[in-house]
Amino acid sequence: MVDVGTLSLVATGALLLFALAVGIRVLAGIFRDGRERSRKRREGEIDRYTEDPVYDRDPPDPDADGAAPATCPQCGAENASEFAYCRECAAPLGPNP
């Protein structure tokens, strides 16, 4: 009769081997993609520094909603309108933060 410890050890080993096989396939794909991109850059098919639309955007304006920036009553620092506490001294900015 097979005990539970041996069965769990075999199942764990099989799962680890499966995860290793999947990981190797993913890493091989990443490596192939990198080599292909390097080849395309060398041959001039793609620019060396391409723009990324996600990271090259301007950051959103925190005061775009038209609200005036909040001034701290304690230290006088300018804070974005959605802040509840001062960014300089951590004092509450409104009557009910």
Rank of each mutant, 00 (worst) to 15 (best):
R57G: 08
R25D: 06
G34M: 11
V54H: 03
C75K: 10
D58T: 13
D47F: 04
A84Q: 15
G29M: 05
D3Y: 11
E36Y: 02
F83V: 01
P73Q: 09
C86P: 03
A77L: 13
P59D: 11
E88S: 15
F18D: 02
T6P: 01
P62C: 05
L17Y: 00
A68Y: 00
L93T: 01
D3Q: 10
A28L: 11
G44N: 14
G76E: 09
R42N: 05
P95T: 09
Q74P: 01
I46V: 15
A11I: 03
A80K: 11
A14S: 06
G76I: 12
Q74F: 06
A11Y: 00
P97G: 08
Y49E: 10
G94E: 05
C75S: 11
V22S: 04
L93E: 02
G76P: 09
V54I: 15
N79C: 14
E82C: 06
Y55G: 03
C86H: 01
V4E: 05
G5V: 13
L7V: 05
G13Y: 02
A19S: 09
E51I: 12
P73V: 05
C89L: 10
A84Y: 03
N79E: 06
C72N: 03
R87Q: 13
A28C: 01
V2A: 09
E51K: 15
F83G: 01
E43R: 15
I46W: 10
R25Y: 00
D56L: 00
S38E: 08
R32Y: 07
G66F: 04
